[in-house]
C-alpha cells in the first residue's frame, strides 16, 4: 500500500513538475516576446543596455524586489538611480502590459543573461499592482 502511495505521489509530482516546466517555459517564451517588443530597443537583446543611457539588466543585483519591477513597468521610473556603479538620471516611460505579460517579462528578464530568480505568478503581479496604485483598473 505504502509503495503504491509513494508511486502515485512520485507520479503526481512528476506530472506536476512536468506542467510546472511547461508553464515556466511558456511564461519565459511569452516573456521573450514582450521583451523584444517593448524593452529590447533600449535594454538591448543581450540585456546589456547602453552605458550612460539605459541601465543593464544582466547580473546587476537590482532585480530581486518583484514589487519594484512591477511598479517600474506600470508607472515608469525617473532617475537618479545607481546600477552596477553607474549613475543614470533619465526617465523610462511606463508600459501598459497585462498582468500576465508583466509576470512573463519579469520572469524572462530575471532568468536571462546569467540572472536567476524564482518565477512569479500572475496573481502576484495583480496584487503588486493593486499595492502600488490605489484604484488601479485596466481598460
Amino acid at each position: 500500500m505504502k509503495k503504491a502511495i509513494l508511486f502515485i505521489s512520485l507520479g503526481m509530482m512528476a506530472l506536476a513538475s512536468q506542467s510546472f516546466i511547461q508553464a515556466n517555459s511558456s511564461s519565459l517564451s511569452n516573456g521573450k516576446n514582450v521583451y523584444e517588443t517593448y524593452c529590447m530597443s533600449c535594454h538591448m537583446d543581450n540585456g546589456a543596455g547602453v552605458p550612460g543611457a539605459f541601465p543593464s539588466l544582466a547580473k546587476t543585483g537590482n532585480l530581486a524586489d518583484k514589487n519594484r519591477l512591477v511598479k517600474i513597468i506600470l508607472q515608469g521610473v525617473r532617475g537618479p538611480i545607481n546600477v552596477k556603479g553607474t549613475k543614470y538620471d533619465g526617465e523610462m516611460a511606463s508600459i501598459s502590459l497585462s498582468d500576465k505579460e508583466t509576470a512573463d517579462v519579469i520572469n524572462y528578464i530575471r532568468n536571462s543573461w546569467g540572472n536567476k530568480a524564482p518565477m512569479i505568478t500572475v496573481a502576484e503581479v495583480a496584487a503588486a499592482k493593486k499595492a502600488v496604485v490605489k484604484g488601479y483598473q485596466a481598460y
Binding site: N33, A93, S96
Partner: peptide, 23 residues
C-alpha cells in the same frame, strides 16, 4: 479602445494605447 474617466482620456500614448504589431 479609448477609455474615458471623468472626462480624461486614459490612453495618452502608444505605450498605453495598443496598436497591432508585426507579430
Amino acid at each position: 479602445g479609448m477609455r474615458i474617466e471623468k472626462g480624461v482620456p486614459m490612453q495618452k500614448n502608444l505605450n498605453q494605447y495598443r496598436i497591432i504589431r508585426h507579430k
